[in-house]
Nucleic acid binder design. Structure first.
Lengths: 152, 152
DNA sequence: CTCGTTGCAAAGGATTTGCACAAGT
DNA sequence: ACTTGTGCAAATCCTTTGCAACGAG
């Protein structure tokens, strides 16, 4: 398991645009799919790990270029959570990101969570919210309790 | 106009921590207050503009350090909207940020908008949402209509 | 065979950090 | 005076770009 690609929307979408299906593109997509929330750097690391000692992993620049391409193809989405760390995730599993400002822990929530707010925004501002890109930040239970315990 | 500081929670909070009130800190805070949504760079620019030709503006590194400090003091908040562009805004005017992925337009919405979602997150995950840090991305009405018009 | 892709290396831009000097209390 | 804050410059980090060789169709 791991090398299976549901169908192959990738090949299809590439063909349509006259682009080419390469091992790198397939691998990057697989990794984004495997790692739920991955930064470009993390993706590169995983790629390197999967390749093994003597193996060969895609160059960082290729990872960036591929991620951008996959996003244009609508196969992955990215969100900016903390400082300078964009996080990519497969477009197949839509979910809202929730990040703890203290520990950086990332949780996922049901998109339905924002349904109400989305509707209101659409009605009030004519603004269509992109659920897959949303990131909510705050404090997780663990950190809140810790803060209370450690005093300050 | 412009040099007025509601009261001076800044001086007070600094004193409490044994820190010092400097012209730079006051100026940075004033600018964040003036510019609704400002990136560190924009803040530096405004500072430079306000200083005038012969004037002297705070160094970029000071702006960064000050912003971080002001945030610790709870006087400003920042959010990550687009690529690598953190945006700061005064903590006095809590609002949810809504950004158009196409044109970059930034709109503000009432924090109440997320009240429901916040409650659910608190109940389900024990996660406290920080409304001032939230950024929703999507497409504004203008861009959506334009997309429909220009065809594709 | 032709044109999109990749890897490598250098370029860039945004932030951070170390330090000696200036400034607030 | 004593200690914190600032400016300057160098160091980092993350990402983007130019180009020649490579590989998919």
């Amino acid at each position: 398991m791991g090398t299976e690609h549901s169908q192959a929307p990738l090949a299809e979408r590439l063909r349509t645009r006259g682009l080419r299906l390469t091992a790198q593109r397939q691998r990057v997509l697989d990794v984004v799919d495997a790692l739920e929330h991955a930064t470009p750097e993390a993706i590169g690391a995983k790629l390197r790990a999967d390749a093994g000692p003597g193996g060969t992993a895609p160059d960082p620049s290729t990872v960036y270029r591929t991620l951008e391409l996959l996003e244009r193809l609508g196969l992955v989405w990215h969100t900016h959570l903390g400082k300078g760390a964009p996080v990519y995730h497969a477009a197949e599993h839509p979910h809202v990101h929730v990040v703890c400002a203290s520990c950086g822990e990332i949780a996922s929530a049901d998109p339905q969570l924002l349904a109400g707010a989305a509707e209101r925004l659409a009605a009030d501002l004519g603004f269509t919210v992109d659920v897959g890109h949303v990131a909510l930040s705050g404090t997780c239970r663990a950190c809140r309790e810790r803060a209370g315990t450690e005093h300050a």
